[in-house]
């Protein structure tokens, strides 16, 4: 690089050109990295949906499993999932919202609150299969409930989703403006009256968003249900709390072992599409509720 270059500015231009190229190249790589997961998933989904076409029909939704692909159905697993997740909602909502109300409205900022909070964060990171062992050891081993029944499945998945329900409910409760609380207390309301008539109604949409997302996760949970001894294939839907059951992901797991092409490229895609439609619809409802809620707030 000569002095002349500096004076004429060509050296600087070259340098700038090089940096521009680097900048541009990096930007392309980063965009690709951002989109690669989404694009791969979209391609895979396109495949499953195409393969499910022709297999996903009324017969599939209303029959029991079979070793003949044309006769195989998903009905007992669908009902099993629905039954269990309804119970999970029934247990997890009051427990989760209750804990969130305690942490946000009652507990002082002391070590007990920190301890509870850290504990909840840690529970959210425990692998789901460990919850299966908890269910097996606690509900089956210690409490003596039978193996693989609806109630044990629901209890186990409730404990599994509880941390997420608590944390998202806490966020919803925290978003309620303090002015509204003070207004209620100023009118002479007791704390419980204030929570019941101001905090919970205001936080309700946020609580529901978090809860629906947790329930969608619960529907996809497989490993904990395997560990508590739920059936991977069953021929009748559950008929009570202590009846054995299967669930959609368990049936998918069972069918993934069938080497026949009609199962791998027909029955399985159909089962997966049903499961994904349920989960994606629930997530969609949750996101819609959240957006609508935030629009109303503004």
């Amino acid at each position: 690089m000569s002095t002349l270059d500096y004076l004429s500015g060509t050296a600087e231009k070259d340098n700038i050109g090089k940096e521009h190229k680097k900048e541009f190249g990096f930007k392309i790589v980063a965009v690709l990295a951002t989109l690669i997961g989404i694009v791969s998933l979209a391609v895979l989904l396109a495949y499953v949906f195409t393969e499910a076409a022709g297999w996903l029909d009324l017969q599939f939704l209303t029959s029991t499993p079979s070793r003949f692909a044309e006769k195989a159905g998903y009905y007992p697993a669908i009902l099993g999932s629905a039954f269990v997740v309804a119970l999970v909602a029934l247990f997890a909502l009051p427990l989760g919202v209750g804990a969130a109300v305690y942490l946000e409205e009652y507990s002082r900022k002391n070590f007990i609150q920190r301890f509870l909070q850290t504990n909840i964060a840690n529970l959210a990171g425990v692998p789901s299969i460990v919850y299966g062992l908890l269910g097996l050891g606690l509900f089956v081993g210690t409490l003596g409930l039978p193996h693989g029944v609806v109630l044990v499945g629901a209890f186990t998945l409730t404990l599994r989703v509880l941390p997420i329900v608590i944390v998202s409910s806490q966020e919803a409760i925290r978003a309620v403006p303090d002015l509204q609380r003070q207004a209620a207390l100023g009118l002479g309301a007791t704390k419980w009256q204030m929570i019941r008539s101001i905090v919970l109604p205001e936080a309700f949409p946020g609580i529901m968003t978090g809860t629906i997302i947790s329930l969608a996760n619960a529907i996809g949970e497989t490993a904990p249900l395997i560990m508590i001894g739920a059936a991977t294939t069953i021929f009748s839907p559950p008929h009570g709390l202590l009846s054995s059951f299967s669930a959609m992901p368990l049936q998918i797991y069972a069918w993934s072992d069938f080497p026949k092409s009609e199962f791998q490229h027909g029955v399985l895609p159909a089962a997966i599409v049903v499961l994904l439609l349920v989960i994606l619809t629930m997530n969609g409802i949750a996101v819609y509720a959240r957006n609508k809620y935030y629009k109303n707030k503004k």
Binding site: P94, L95, G96, V97, G98, A99, V101, Y102, L103, E105, Y106, S107, L116, N119, I120, N122, L123, V126, V130, Y131, L133, L134, L136, G137, L138, G141, T142, L159, L162, P163, I166, K191
Partner: peptide, 22 residues
């Protein structure tokens, strides 16, 4: 208040349960 505290305790019981069972 007691009822709310009890629901918050469920998460502690869960942790204790996991550790004891394992």
């Amino acid at each position: 208040r007691g009822v709310f505290f009890a629901t918050a305790l469920v998460s502690i019981i869960t942790t204790v349960g996991i550790v004891v069972v394992l």
